[in-house]
């Protein structure tokens, strides 16, 4: 692949800690190879800031192959930037034009307080999972894996929901900061499988209750979450969650 270098202007959110009110700072990013990933561009910038004696920009990242769900930048108004089905770490500089100004913000939601700069606290997701995102089966209790045949379509649909990486882009993209896509993906994964049936009712009730308690908004069905989800999880899962929740309530 041919690569060129470009110069960019960055407008990055800087915030010392959760208490600080924060502000934007401008930076020049020069001689950026179009082969770089977005985070490698930040590495280059941070290296320069360190060498100049400034505080580098804090951002979450780990696997850098689009699966751990740690990276979380709101780039030019888009969760994880302009490419569809892509995490920030997999976004490459080919996506930008020479001379462009890029605005980078943290995920913004009441339930995701900023810890520093672009780093936010997403522990609310862990707590939603704790409320019921599991099958209660102790180690060693399992029957043979093939004793329970599962309809391939159902298994595939369950996998598609389970592919969620818990990055929080759905919350970031939603005008209401709703966590419905995240919660629905987990509820769907289990609702579609026979293993999930025994706890089906309590799971959905408890996970939704926790979701509401964490301070996420309600769903307006705009579909922005689905459009921004790096794993392209469908809002049909949200419909399923609504259905599961209603039938859990209606069950005698």
């Amino acid at each position: 692949m041919e690569h060129t270098t470009i110069n960019l202007k960055l407008k990055v959110w800087r915030q010392k800690n959760a208490q600080d009110s924060g502000r934007f700072e401008n930076y020049d990013a020069k001689d950026i190879s179009t082969e770089m990933s977005f985070l490698e561009m930040f590495d280059v910038l941070n290296e320069r800031l360190i060498n100049e004696g400034q505080d580098p920009i804090a951002f979450d990242h780990d696997c850098r192959e689009g699966i751990c769900g740690m990276c979380s930048m709101h780039i030019n108004g888009r969760a994880h930037g302009p490419w569809q089905g892509t995490t920030t770490c997999q976004l490459h500089m080919r996506a930008f034009k020479d001379g462009e100004t890029i605005t980078v913000e943290p995920w913004r939601a009441k339930a995701f307080p900023v810890l520093k700069d672009l780093t936010v606290d997403r522990s609310a997701f862990d707590r939603i999972q704790q409320a019921g995102g599991y099958v209660s089966v102790n180690t060693g209790n399992a029957q043979d894996g093939n004793a329970l045949p599962i309809d391939k379509d159902k298994a595939d649909a369950s996998f598609a929901a389970a592919a969620c990486i818990g990055c929080g882009a759905c919350v970031a993209a939603c005008k209401n900061s709703s966590a419905m896509l995240f919660t629905s993906a987990k509820v769907s994964q289990y609702a579609l499988l026979p293993q999930g049936q025994p706890e089906r009712t309590t799971r959905v009730l408890n996970m939704v209750a926790q979701m509401d308690k964490e301070g996420f908004g309600a769903c307006t069905n705009t579909g922005a979450c689905e459009a921004e989800c790096p794993k392209e999880i469908s809002i049909s899962n949200i419909a399923r969650l609504n259905r599961e929740y209603l039938s859990a309530q209606l069950s005698l």
């Binding site: 913004r108 009441k110 339930a111 301070g215």
Partner: peptide, 15 residues
């Protein structure tokens, strides 16, 4: 649920 708003919004790109 979003006390601090985004400076840049996606407009009609996502919804």
């Amino acid at each position: 649920k979003r006390p601090v708003k985004y400076a840049v919004n996606p407009g009609n790109a996502t919804s």
